[in-house]
Amino acid sequence: MTKRFAKRLALVATMMTLVTPALSAQQDEAPPPSKPGKPINAGDVLSGELNTMRVRDVKNGKKVATYQITSEPRRLPAPSGLCNLETGPETFQLVTSSDAQAAQLKSFVGKEISVKVDEVTCASDPGQMSEAVITKWSLVKKQ
């Protein structure tokens, strides 16, 4: 029994000598300072990959498609600013105001799109899945 214990102790000691330098090297490396994203204002174009999620509607409980653009971090106009994030929001929920807008987005899921932003705010409702919400927008055709 003593031999087994000695072997295990030697194994643990060897592992610790291998792991400890790697851990201390990781702790010494400071992450690069994060800079706030460039600002986005009404009339600007936001580009990114379009994703969709199925969420339950708060009003009637039906599952509805929610569209989201994942982009580089962006700052929103005051008073929203950085949405309580260091670099600004990276995910933007597109609110569809009609079935035509939803159908328009459905064909672009998983692809890179661009939208002209008319109205954007930080997410505030519990049902919102993104960091920021674009309530008024229009799709920009690529040329």
Score class of each variant (00 low, 15 high):
P39Q: 10
P31G: 12
A102F: 12
M129F: 11
P21Q: 03
V115S: 12
G61E: 05
P31T: 10
T87I: 14
G110I: 03
Q27G: 00
A13Q: 03
K141H: 03
V115K: 14
I40F: 02
V109N: 05
E49M: 13
Q68H: 05
A42K: 03
A13G: 07
A103N: 12
T135E: 01
I40E: 04
Q27Y: 09
A42N: 10
T66V: 15
S114K: 00
A42P: 02
A100K: 13
E119V: 03
P21K: 08
Q104T: 13
A22C: 02
T66L: 15
G43N: 02
A13W: 01
D125P: 06
V45K: 15
S98H: 04
D99E: 13
S107M: 12
T96K: 11
L11S: 07
C122E: 07
K63M: 09
G127A: 14
T87S: 09
P79L: 08
S24V: 14
P77H: 03
M16R: 06
S34G: 07
S97T: 10
L139F: 12
T91V: 01
A65C: 14
Y67C: 09
T20Y: 11
L85F: 01
L105H: 09
A6D: 09
L82G: 04
M16N: 06
V64G: 11
E86N: 01
T135G: 13
I40D: 05
E112S: 12
K136L: 01
